[in-house]
Design a binder for these strands. Structure first.
Length: 827
RNA sequence: GCCGGGGUGGCGAAAUCGGCAGACGCAGCGGACUUAAAAUCCGCCGCCCGCGAGGGCGUGUGGGUUCGACCCCCACCCCCGGCACCA
């Protein structure tokens, strides 16, 4: 045994993560190692992971979401960036209020106790969060500015109050935004929602519908872009005016939105939504009873029933007719619940020959069906279903013979020239409803005065503070309504007695701008300074779950664009790059929940294996964007790996000065090749293969060490240093410990990321595959970039290849240098 | 129905540009060390045939392009997510 190799008894110090992790976390905090300075001259990198809701405990999903994000942020720091990686808490919301009702306490108590616990749990992760910038949305110095944003949006005409039919959750006893209704149910509690007519505050997100469809200049995932596009639901078409001539009705037209104006000559009936305002006026006495009964029945149905695509269409005739301006045909007006009051104009022109829903309706009620396109699939007989797009126009007066692709523009032009209607774009997205009849949110900063009406609270009077002693009764009205001290105030204009708005803001409003507050969290003059905004914003890399695609991620884009138009910031998008991790599930493949009993507590994993092992295992599980079940059994493999790292770094190997030995070249190739792979993987969010590459290097070093081979001292040290440096982002504690044991200067986290030398990473000799007719027959070791004839000669000489060539003619040889040689034979 | 993402060993997965399918790890099997266990280390590990050398098959299904396809094209099946009587 060589003197450099320590006897076994002397290297029994085993890898023991807990004391190491505790010690370095304390040291880093004492040294303010992760404090981000605004005056650091290096290029900035703003990395952000979605802040947690203050639900009580940190769960595995938080680790799953934050650890890779932290790993990449640490890597960016080692790459020479001045990295901002902040953390905070999304602290307003219903669970706190519900807990307060149950325990007869104040939601603030529950929330801030949770924050204390979660902050400590977050610290065990060993992430590089800069806690000096912590933001808590429920603290007055934050929500003051949330209220300020509301005033700005109001001033700019992007906030308005309106009476409207809005979604109501009977369980949470508050209204909800459209985005919070999933399949007719409350996004939070799952209760079936209903509609209520209420005076509510809205933000004009629809004004930005088109711009929100533009994702150029940002790198987001196709998934989120697709979800946002679907949600915004842009449809090009036309709004057409049908003539109405009913005595006693004050209008002489009904407007309809259609995506197929080119089928207007095929209109054989007209349908209004049961809620359409004209229904009552136009219905003839003979049909009044039937119509009233139908409208009543429609009102009683839940949205889930009404919008089911499965059910058969129903409707009733109103007795009224409208005139198709194109051909002066008089068509009957029906009402049917398959027409939605909230989309388009709440009216549909019935073209049964070219729309399957209209077709089914016409078949059921014996309405006429007139094809207006000579579709190639149509034999001219009676239709069995609606015809698709294609063919030339027929039965369409002046348009007969027009090709399908020219039809829509031609009809729209004609409509515009004759005053029948205009080409238009319709959107599915509605304005964002932000009022909530709940107490634990930012109060909407307006008052109502008998003399002056609605009056915004002046900026210098912000924040409108939440009372500390509200009584919580889930009544369907904000508890603030019963709090006299809160409710009664004076008018900012004339000093008259006035009432405060008692609704609070949707918590998504708080999270629409939190990324801007992190850059200047203690500013009490403004939400943030313009100078710091210019330095830090927008966020360079955001990461989080896809469940926020049409809520948080859409709202904050709207906010950013509004802020830009108000001159507050100078950019268009909040997050330049967005990466979505998949969802981590319980070991049974189900969502983790207490009731299923499949919850894996991160605290337990950290206690048993250490934070570094848990961090690396989460990243090793599989591709981050994929998600999947958490299999607790595999973690031992990652722990064994870190053990091997520990043993190989602390245990040493037999070394000497051997700069020219072939083994030295091999070892350096391993080192540089691994740096190349890890660098590539970490840039591209491929944390699973990053860990695999580090494992391979470790295995190679272990092989050298176990075999007792003598290696070059400098190359060995280079390998160990590189390994520990690359370990610093994914496993920050063991890396710091091993760095110190290598007698390198504190801290490993302020070192530069190792760079690789492509020449050293390159192979001298490669194994190429030899195929005969595409089937693998031999593998040959050849020098890199070997010429074709050398490869061919070796291949043809091989006795594994020869039998497959016997008696056959070589037609062709394909040679791909450094990869393969394929011999094509015939006969 | 429309949009997006997928389908590879017993399991999680890998394969940078159309070029050796299954890296890395779990589980399993065999071995070294040990009184024993743990820990550590070494070997095997897609399926079928064969004692073996070796051969055949193999990336959801069926076709196609190509010397060569997990990868590209066409048709289809299945899974996950989103939107959906949206006119």
């Amino acid at each position: 045994m060589s003197p450099q190799t320590k006897p076994k008894s002397e290297r029994t110090e085993r890898y023991d993560p807990q004391p190491i992790e505790r010690r370095w976390q304390q040291r880093w905090e004492a040294d303010q190692l992760y404090l981000t300075r605004d005056d650091d001259p290096r290029p900035k990198w703003y990395a952000l992971t979605m802040f947690p809701y203050t639900s009580g405990n940190l769960h595995i999903g938080h680790w799953w979401a934050m650890v890779p994000s932290d790993t990449q942020a640490r890597y960016k720091r080692m790459q020479g960036y001045n990295v901002l990686f902040p953390m905070g808490f999304d602290a307003f919301g219903l669970p706190a209020e519900n807990a307060a009702i149950k325990d007869q306490t104040h939601p603030a108590e529950w929330t801030f106790a949770n924050i204390e616990r979660m902050r400590e749990q977050l610290k065990t992760m060993g992430a590089m969060f800069d806690w000096s910038r912590e933001v808590i949305t429920a603290s007055p110095d934050y929500y003051k500015w949330t209220q300020w944003w509301f005033l700005k949006l109001l001033e700019y005409g992007l906030a308005y109050k309106q009476n409207a039919a809005v979604w109501w959750c009977p369980n949470d006893k508050t209204v909800l935004a459209n985005e919070q209704v999933i399949d007719g149910r409350c996004e939070r509690c799952g209760a079936v929602v209903s509609k209520r007519d209420l005076d509510q505050w809205f933000f004009r997100i629809t004004r930005y519908a088109d711009e929100l469809l533009d994702f150029s200049g940002i790198e987001w995932t196709p998934q989120i872009e697709s979800m946002q596009r679907n949600w915004i639901g842009r449809s090009e078409g036309a709004e057409l005016r049908f003539g109405l001539d009913v005595a006693g009705v004050d209008t002489n037209e009904v407007r309809v939105f259609t995506t197929r104006p080119d089928t207007v000559y095929g209109v054989t009936f007209f349908v209004l939504a049961p809620e359409h305002p004209l229904v009552e006026q136009i219905t003839t006495p003979a049909h009044a009873e039937e119509v009233r009964a139908y409208v009543e029945a429609a009102r009683r149905e839940s949205e889930i029933e009404r919008t089911s695509t499965e059910r058969e269409k129903t409707g009733v005739f109103t007795g009224a007719y409208v005139i198709n301006p194109f051909n002066n045909e008089r068509v009957p007006v029906w009402i049917a619940d398959y027409v939605l009051a909230t989309y388009g104009t709440g009216a549909v022109m019935g073209v049964p020959a070219h729309d399957q829903r209209d077709f089914e309706f016409a078949k059921k009620y014996g309405l006429q069906i007139i094809p207006v396109f000579n579709h190639p699939d149509w034999d001219g007989g009676e239709l069995e279903h609606a015809l698709g797009h294609g063919g030339t126009m027929i039965n369409s007066g002046p348009f007969d013979g027009t090709l399908d692709d020219d039809a829509i523009p031609a009809v729209v032009k004609y409509a515009e020239e004759h005053g029948f209607g205009t080409g238009t774009v319709n959107y599915r997205i509605r304005d964002w409803l932000i009022s909530r009849q709940r107490m634990w949110g930012a109060p909407i900063p307006v008052v109502y005065c008998d003399t002056h009406g609605m009056v915004p609270v002046p900026e210098q009077d912000l924040p409108v503070l939440l009372p500390e002693d509200a009584e919580f009764r889930p009544t369907g009205e904000s508890p603030l309504t019963y709090h006299d001290g809160f409710l009664h105030t004076t008018c900012p204009i004339g000093g008259e007695p006035a009432r405060r708005e008692t609704d609070t803001m949707d918590t998504f409003m708080c999270s629409s701008w939190y990324q801007m507050r992190y850059i200047d969290p203690h500013n009490d003059e403004r939400p943030f300074s313009r100078e710091l905004a210019r330095k830090w914003l927008p966020v360079d890399q955001y990461t989080g779950g896809a469940e926020h695609a049409v809520m948080h991620l859409l709202y904050t884009r709207f906010f950013t664009k509004a802020a830009r138009d108000m001159g507050i910031i100078g950019f268009d998008e909040p997050f330049t790059r967005l990466f979505n991790q998949g969802q981590i599930l319980g070991p049974d493949g189900q969502r983790m929940s207490k009731s299923r009993g499949n919850v894996i507590a991160p605290d337990d994993q950290v206690q048993r294996w250490g934070a570094d092992t848990f961090r690396c295992y989460l990243m090793f599980l599989g591709p981050w964007d994929q998600g999947g079940p958490y299999d607790p059994s595999g973690i031992s493999g990652v722990h064994r790996w870190l053990n091997r790292v520990w043993n190989v770094v602390t245990g040493g190997a037999v070394t000497a000065d051997l700069p020219d030995a072939p083994e030295t070249r091999d070892l350096r190739r391993w080192t540089h090749r691994t740096i190349e792979r890890v660098t590539h993987d970490i840039e591209n969010f491929r944390f699973n293969t990053m860990i695999a590459a580090l494992m391979e290097l470790t295995n190679e070093l272990t092989r050298i060490r176990e075999s007792g081979t003598t290696v070059d001292a400098a190359a060995w040290r280079e390998a160990l240093r590189s390994l520990v440096l690359m370990l610093a982002p994914p496993a920050p504690h063991i890396a710091e410990e091993l760095w110190q044991r290598l007698d390198e200067p504190y801290s490993v986290h302020t070192q530069s990321w190792p760079s690789f030398d492509a020449a050293l990473a390159a192979q001298d000799e490669v194994e190429i595959a030899v195929q005969v007719n595409g089937k693998l027959r031999e593998r040959l070791a050849l020098p890199v970039d070997a010429p074709e004839d050398a490869a061919r000669d070796r291949a043809l000489a091989s006795d594994r290849v020869a039998p497959h060539l016997a008696g056959k003619e070589i037609v062709r040889i394909i040679y791909v240098p450094n990869r393969l040689l394929n011999i094509v034979v015939k006969g």
